[in-house]
Amino acid sequence: MKHRKIIAILHGIPEGEMLDIAEALVSSGITLLEVSMNGAQPLQKIQMMVNHFGQRAIIGAGMVIQKDQPYEVANLGGRFIFSPYTDTNVIKQTLDLGMYSFPGCFSPTECFAAISKGTHTIGLFPASVLGATGVEAIRGILPEDIQLYAVGGVTSSNMAIYRKAGCVGFGMKSYLYQPGYTPEIVAEKAMKVVKTYDALESMRA
């Protein structure tokens, strides 16, 4: 199954609504789901999501800042780790466990520190502060095989800007979900994102 390079950051969602919101995302074509570790009972939520979706979605953890957390996530079937900053210990442990590592980087120094530990995927955060000019400048000095994800302030309206600047993927939180959003609203937002992503991909082909 092909998964689009769109990570839905699930944070602030009431536990009773989590599966319905996640199902709306997956059914719309967003199948990379990140459960924030700084929310309530994150490990239980990750286990619930892994059990529910099976091969339909890839479940990972975000806001990972402790070196033992990748092990906990891997034991539950999680497959990627997203960190809010560049922690080389977390990166190494994540990769050693066979998971994808998405360290949050803001500067060339952080990017190269992350790359030195073996990651090939980097979340540029906050992308809204870097802007397209900053993203393009960083992209220009990194190895070609490094995949950049724009994270922070990304919407369906500005995805093309970040793609042109050199990002191949996107991490989204508040655009896809805010308190009070119903699964129907989330699905509508997700479908806009997927439509834009697919259009950008077809332009590359």
Rank of each mutant, 00 (worst) to 15 (best):
H120V: 09
S116H: 08
Q44W: 04
F106A: 15
M48A: 12
Q55N: 13
G62F: 05
S116L: 13
E110M: 11
N89W: 10
V35Y: 01
S101E: 05
I59G: 05
V90T: 05
P108Y: 13
Q93F: 07
L95Q: 03
C111P: 01
I30E: 00
F80P: 00
H120Y: 07
K67F: 11
T94C: 04
T86A: 15
C111S: 09
K92C: 12
K67H: 12
C105Y: 02
P42W: 05
G60Q: 09
A114I: 08
I59D: 00
Q69L: 15
V73I: 09
G54P: 05
I65E: 06
V50Q: 04
Q47N: 12
G77M: 09
I59L: 10
G29S: 07
S36V: 05
G78T: 03
Q41A: 15
I46P: 00
E110P: 03
T31D: 04
P84D: 08
D96S: 13
Q47I: 10
T88F: 04
K117W: 06
A114F: 05
L32N: 04
F106R: 11
E34Y: 06
Q66E: 08
A74S: 09
G54I: 06
G78R: 03
N51F: 12
C111K: 01
T86M: 14
Y85M: 12
F80N: 02
G54W: 06
I115P: 00
Y71P: 08
L97K: 01
D96G: 09
L95T: 00
L95I: 04
L32I: 01
M63L: 13
L76G: 02
G78Y: 03
H120Q: 11
F112A: 13
V73A: 02
D87M: 10
Y100C: 15
T109V: 09
Y85A: 14
L32T: 02
K92Q: 11
L97Q: 03
A40N: 09
K67P: 09
Q55D: 13
K92P: 01
V90K: 04
P70S: 14
H120E: 12
L97H: 02
M63Q: 09
L43S: 06
Q66N: 10
Y85P: 02
G39L: 03
D96K: 11
Q55H: 11
R79V: 04
M49N: 01
D87Q: 07
A113R: 07
V90Q: 02
G29M: 14
N38D: 11
A61K: 03
F102P: 03
C111V: 04
V50N: 05
K117S: 11
T86G: 09
C105T: 02
V64Q: 01
D68R: 15
K67S: 15
C111T: 01
F102Q: 05
S28N: 04
A114P: 01
F53A: 12
G62R: 01
P42E: 04
L43G: 04
A57W: 04
S101Q: 07
N51L: 15
S116C: 13
M99A: 12
K92E: 10
Y71E: 14
E72H: 13
A74R: 09
K67V: 14
G118I: 07
S28H: 06
S83E: 03
T86L: 14
S36W: 00
M63I: 10
Q55R: 14
T94P: 01
S36H: 00
N75R: 14
T88K: 11
T109A: 15
G104N: 06
M49P: 00
E72V: 12
M37P: 01
M48E: 03
H120T: 08
S101W: 04
Q44H: 08
K117R: 12
G62L: 11
F102I: 08
S107W: 06
